[in-house]
């Protein structure tokens, strides 16, 4: 067992032990501090990610490019089989209808994406997805827009059709979106057409269950689920999805947004509803204050 004396000494000295103790205390302190004062450490976390994530983009480009290339090559491989399937399906009117609908949705999404402007007067900002959570226990994505683009915690993120999640954690150049399917996601929803209020609870599955429904019997699979705007976090009426019933009989939501592979997300600017502080100002708004209210 011959080995280097220098190095073996290096990690058994008193100094090394001191460093080890200091490291253990530091980590423990960070964890306890995070448990007690979560927002401050989370802000630190976003600041660190803000530095790390955009710098990694140049490494990511060739990798994602290669993966996309392989994927398209695979799809060329299966093109004959797909063709056969399409020939069968083409007989059916339903297939035509679905194709037309999906093209319409895609068109709507692309049209919306074309309106990208980083101007605070516009109602949404479009961001590119930089990274996902990297672990199977969290469902989050990282966007390339942040505080410098005016992003604020709590805003809704959509993919052009349906709600995807909300902003939670804003760095200067990046922002994290907690997706509706994440374990910690709780969104107040309205189930149309009956107008039932409920809570959609993320559970790391692609179809989040709904809880706390007022009247379960009034809800049927196929009902539309939209955000209710309770709590003032989200604007009301954002499309979330459709109610489906799982095999165990539980009501779940099939999301309207295509969360399979997110590339762009729209962040909806949402100013909390104006609070009415005085009783008299509602009746007959003076012309001088009307202008300032518009500007807000």
């Amino acid at each position: 067992m011959a080995r280097d004396q220098n190095t073996s000494d290096q990690y058994s000295t008193a100094l090394a032990r001191l460093v080890l103790a200091a490291m253990i205390i530091m980590l423990l302190a960070i964890f306890l501090f995070w448990r007690i004062d979560n927002p401050r450490i989370e802000k630190m976390r976003m600041a660190v990610i803000d530095v790390v994530a955009p710098n990694f983009a140049w490494v990511a480009i060739p990798v994602t490019g290669t993966v996309n290339l392989v994927r398209s090559a695979q799809s060329y491989n299966s093109i004959y089989r797909q063709n056969q399937e399409l020939r069968r399906e083409i007989q059916q009117m339903k297939a035509w209808k679905e194709a037309a609908l999906s093209f319409e949705q895609e068109n709507a999404r692309l049209l919306n994406l074309n309106k990208v402007k980083l101007d605070p007067k516009f109602t949404h900002i479009t961001g590119v997805v930089l990274a996902d959570s990297g672990s199977p226990f969290r469902q989050t994505v990282l966007l390339n827009v942040g505080a410098r683009d005016g992003i604020i915690d709590g805003w809704a993120a959509m993919d052009g059709i349906g709600l995807v999640g909300r902003i939670s954690g804003v760095g200067d150049r990046t922002a994290r979106v907690i997706m509706l399917s994440d374990n910690s996601s709780r969104i107040p929803v309205t189930i149309e057409p009956t107008g039932q209020y409920a809570l959609m609870v993320g559970d790391n599955s692609s179809r989040p269950p709904i809880d706390f429904v007022e009247n379960l019997e009034a809800v049927r699979p196929g009902d539309r689920v939209v955000s209710s705007g309770d709590g003032g976090v989200f604007p009301a009426g954002l499309l979330i999805g459709q109610v489906v019933q799982s095999s165990s009989g539980r009501l779940r939501v099939r999301l309207a947004a295509d969360i399979q592979r997110l590339e762009f997300l729209r962040i909806i600017r949402h100013e909390p509803r104006e609070k009415i502080l005085t009783t008299g100002s509602l009746v007959g708004v003076p012309s001088s204050t009307a202008g300032s209210q518009d500007a807000e």
């Binding site: 990511a60 994602t64 990274a131 199977p136 469902q139 399917s181 790391n204 399979q260 592979r261 590339e263």
Partner: peptide
Amino acid sequence: FQTLPFSTSP
């Protein structure tokens, strides 16, 4: 590389 957004669904 783990955080690259190849698939964002659960």
